[in-house]
């Protein structure tokens, strides 16, 4: 929201609130400093490059989550929507339908789950977290049915190139994640739809009162989140070389955490694309650093959860 607010005038005496607004960049700085001191392997070109590649997947998911949170919703189904889209990609590809069709189907699969969420929440007025919790389970079941619970390997030179290559020093993943973030920022701050997303989240009755079709706007948010899952699934398959139906449920929490860390309100109406990008980078750096330092994997969920709880605590001071 930085560019829609009054230029840099902060009330005095709100220093804690100001600190809360910059929680993500401050946290990112601290994490970088700590791991830089802890290990010489952290701040190297190759590690940062890899860190940004793995952050790209989370970033794309978080951008979809950002739109849903903007309309005062929450999308818990991303946890299984990503493996589902990945499984559709793997299934289609191993069935010999060609990569273009397979990627298209994967995007469509993600979008479809998002549209179902959107219809249930917006049209039938069902509670967002129950709906997406339900689809989380349904979609994970569909994934298991489709793959019989097995990992589907995807051997594609194009996808491998997508994960490894890039334009000059810029990896394709970064470019894609940047494009997605730029699109979301553009949508939110430069288009009517963005204004309606913020209005619907900020005060749904008022938005309805001025004639905004709030149902359609909420549907757009959930559908976008589903599509983002599809995009993230393509990146995921490219990076891991296959679709594992059982993996990556921790991306659900991380996607919500990135949005909260970035300073967006879970009550809706406030969005910060830059903040969410920073939040995603912070979480990924944390996991990356832990691995480098050799701390057991079992501590990672504890660390991520603690950061999320900290962010939730800090956001209390953000009024």
């Amino acid at each position: 929201m930085a560019d829609t607010q009054a230029p840099g005038r902060l009330d005095p005496g709100l220093s804690f609130g100001a600190a809360a607004r910059f929680a993500a960049p401050i946290g990112l700085g601290v994490v970088f400093l700590v791991f830089f001191i802890a290990t010489p392997d952290f701040l190297t070109m190759s590690n940062i490059s890899d860190l940004l590649v793995s952050a790209s997947i989370l970033l794309v998911l978080a951008m979809g989550q950002q739109l849903v949170v903007t309309v005062a919703g929450i999308d818990l189904s991303v946890g299984s929507n990503l493996p589902w889209s990945a499984a559709v990609l793997g299934y289609a590809y191993t069935s010999g339908w060609g990569l273009t069709v397979s990627i298209g189907l994967a995007l469509l699969a993600g979008l479809a789950a998002g549209v179902v969420n959107g219809l249930l929440v917006a049209r039938l007025n069902m509670t967002d977290f129950i709906v997406t919790l339900g689809t989380l389970s349904v979609v994970s079941g569909l994934t298991l049915l489709l793959t019989s619970g097995n990992t589907v390997p995807v051997n594609s030179d194009f996808l491998r190139g997508l994960a490894i290559d890039g334009i000059g020093p810029l990896r394709w993943f970064w470019v894609l994640a940047f494009v997605v973030a730029a699109l979301v920022g553009f949508l939110l701050y430069r288009t009517r739809t963005g204004t309606y997303l913020l209005s619907t989240g900020g005060n749904i009755e008022a938005a309805r009162g001025v004639g905004i079709h709030v149902d359609r706007i909420r549907l757009i948010a959930y559908a976008s989140s589903g599509l983002a899952c599809g995009v993230a699934a393509v990146l995921f398959v490219a990076r891991t070389g296959g679709a594992d139906p059982s993996l990556q449920t921790d991306l659900l929490l991380s996607s919500i955490a990135a949005v909260v860390l970035g300073g967006s309100s879970l009550f809706g109406g406030k969005a910060s694309v830059l903040g969410t990008v920073t939040g995603a980078l912070l979480l990924q750096s944390l996991i990356n650093g832990f691995t480098l330092v050799g701390i057991s994997q079992y501590y990672q969920p504890i660390a991520v959860g603690t950061v999320v709880l900290g962010a939730a605590f800090i956001s209390r001071f953000q009024k």
Partner: peptide, 19 residues
């Protein structure tokens, strides 16, 4: 009950749905 969006600036509220 007013019908303004508190977190949007005044100009965006004035032009809401008439952008």
């Amino acid at each position: 009950t007013l019908g303004l969006i508190e977190d949007l600036p005044v100009w965006q509220n004035l032009y809401l749905n008439h952008e």
